[in-house]
Write a protein that binds this DNA or RNA. Sequence first.
DNA 1: ATATTAAAGGACAAAAATATCCTTTAATCT
DNA 2: AGATTAAAGGATATTTTTGTCCTTTAATAT
Lengths: 159, 159
Amino acid sequence: MSFNILYLHLDYTRRKMFSKACKYAINAMIYVATLPEGQERAGLKEISKAINSPEAFTAKILQELVRHDLFSSVKGPNGGFHIQGNPNKIFLSEIVEAIDGDMLFTGCALGLEKCSEDHPCPVHHKFLAIRDHLTGMLMTTSLRDVADRVNIGISFLKY
Amino acid sequence: MSFNILYLHLDYTRRKMFSKACKYAINAMIYVATLPEGQERAGLKEISKAINSPEAFTAKILQELVRHDLFSSVKGPNGGFHIQGNPNKIFLSEIVEAIDGDMLFTGCALGLEKCSEDHPCPVHHKFLAIRDHLTGMLMTTSLRDVADRVNIGISFLKY
DNA sequence: ATATTAAAGGACAAAAATATCCTTTAATCT
DNA sequence: AGATTAAAGGATATTTTTGTCCTTTAATAT
């Protein structure tokens, strides 16, 4: 039952920019940011249903976000997760960095250990602009920004 | 012997844009593109030494590049790999697509199955520009471009 | 106080990516 | 033709990422 695995298992032709864990993290935080005032806390089940993610795995990621002070959590009845701080001042870059780290922003695109201006990889200069563009965008896009788009119905968290 | 694994094995804080396989592929092709006229073919050992990559794994990747008509290969003594076609007309995008697929260019950043203008994810519009920037760069940067930089000594394939 | 609820945490499982080894195939060289 | 060389391909191993399950901890509600 493998058409394109005819040739080796080097078929992973579906590499994306972020890890799944990171996507779940971003989606989860956006979802919680969309909740109305007075009820801005949501439980694991609610969150993973809202963003269509595997519950147990999502739990691990939410824990990680709590450790990174992006969420805070409350146990027991009516417990759950709420955003730690002001969604206007939480940026996508912080979520990405919490889960995927900063290699996307700082690491060499070609994997050179000591890639730098002095000792650049062959695509160093080409990627500088891309990286700046990407990190600039992530560092200026707040949770509020994107959550509002969901709330007014012009963007979506699942399917 | 695990300091930052104190908390779960969700520590993969080193996500990069491309897979390792893809980096090896790009580096390998750049290396072969740097070879002087008349000897523009290199064997697996030479290549993986030049780009500092694991030999056997690199072999698989070179095979894949041959299947994608980016390299052609010759067996036996003095065999090896040479670039199939004109390095001026081979672009980084083709190598990335051969190994990592086109999800980086076309896939939704947040993993929405049917992310589109009509039904966009919360960061759709923000990522459009990034993606265009990235793919534009990859589609216009030729192997010759980057190989020349290595040849004149202003960029490097290892360390 | 006790029961209930929900997150935290540990152990484990499955899948994908990375990597190695060994055999087979096809060139070249003698 | 036979020996040698190097890529192709198959099998397998390791590591990382993704995912599940079950117990423990700490809140709330009765």
